[in-house]
């Protein structure tokens, strides 16, 4: 048994009186693809933001590989470099081209030389099939293309794990396929991924494990087969029946 890449232990997150996460524990193995599902407000996105410390947990501990990243004194910027994040709204840097979006982290954070950074950025754009759009600005790209650039930008930092926060929810239906295809390719290359998504086809085909959250806790988890065919909890059953219908 290999050691887990990510270990979340009893994580709580509150905003004032509002408790969003009420004790979530989750362990992710290297190369594993975990799909997080659950009704809106169940805490899925908050959990992702806790993992990369954009919103650190109010209680509980998280380990990334051998390091406890919630420990005091940890360099959070360094931690985030190892965790790629893809957002529902893409959040591409609007003043930079596709290439510039991928390059800037390489130059500013990984301190690479411009030429080196350009080559690697082009390589990452090729990986998501967008080398021919390198010099386009975000406003000139379709939603699907923007999201693929965002994936390339995250990949450029050479992350050990990738978090996807509803990566296809802001896309027109005919554009989700190209993004899911890139994610599927990443999974097959062995990238460890946690994906918040209601794309059932993707979950069935690509996920190693599906985690169902509701009300700030993990209700049930299992393989896609278990979860879709014989979920233990009535709430899981009801939710999955709703989104697969």
């Amino acid at each position: 048994m290999t050691s887990p890449i990510l270990r979340i232990e009893d994580v709580h997150k509150s905003y004032g009186a509002l408790q969003v996460l009420k004790g979530v524990s989750l362990t992710v193995q290297p190369r594993e693809v975990v799909v997080l599902v659950g009704p809106s407000g169940s805490g899925k996105s908050t959990l992702l933001r806790c993992i990369n410390l954009l919103n650190p947990p109010t209680k509980g501990r998280i380990w990334l590989e051998d390091q406890e990243i919630t420990a005091p004194g940890v360099n959070q910027d360094r931690v985030r470099q190892r965790i790629g994040m893809v957002f529902q709204e893409f959040n591409l840097f609007t003043h930079l081209t596709a290439l510039g979006n991928v390059m800037i982290g390489l130059v500013k954070v990984r301190k690479m030389r411009k030429n080196e950074a350009r080559d690697l950025a082009m390589f990452e754009l090729e990986r998501v099939g967008l080398a021919d759009r390198a010099h386009y600005y975000p406003a000139q790209l379709s939603g699907g293309q923007k999201q693929r650039v965002a994936i390339a930008r995250a990949l450029g930092m050479d992350p050990h794990i990738m978090l996807f926060d509803e990566p296809t929810s802001a896309l027109d239906p005919e554009l989700t396929g190209e993004v899911l295809a890139v994610m599927q390719k990443l999974a097959s290359e062995g990238m460890t991924m946690i994906v918040v998504s209601h794309e059932i086809g993707f979950a069935r085909q690509v996920a190693d494990r599906i985690v169902f959250m509701e009300g700030g806790v993990v209700v049930e988890e299992g393989t896609p087969q278990q979860m879709f065919e014989q979920p233990v909890h009535e709430r899981t059953r009801a939710f999955l029946r709703n989104i697969t219908r």
């Binding site: 954009l54 470099q81 609007t94 003043h95 800037i104 995250a154």
Partner: peptide, 30 residues
């Protein structure tokens, strides 16, 4: 400047200052 710009900059490992300098200010100046 859209808040998502700062968040995305932090997510790739930029410090707050780096994010302000390289991402937020160039857009704000425009």
């Amino acid at each position: 400047v859209q808040p998502g710009q700062m968040i995305a900059a932090r997510a790739i490992g930029m410090s707050r200052l780096q994010a302000i300098q390289s991402i937020v200010l160039p857009q704000a100046l425009r």
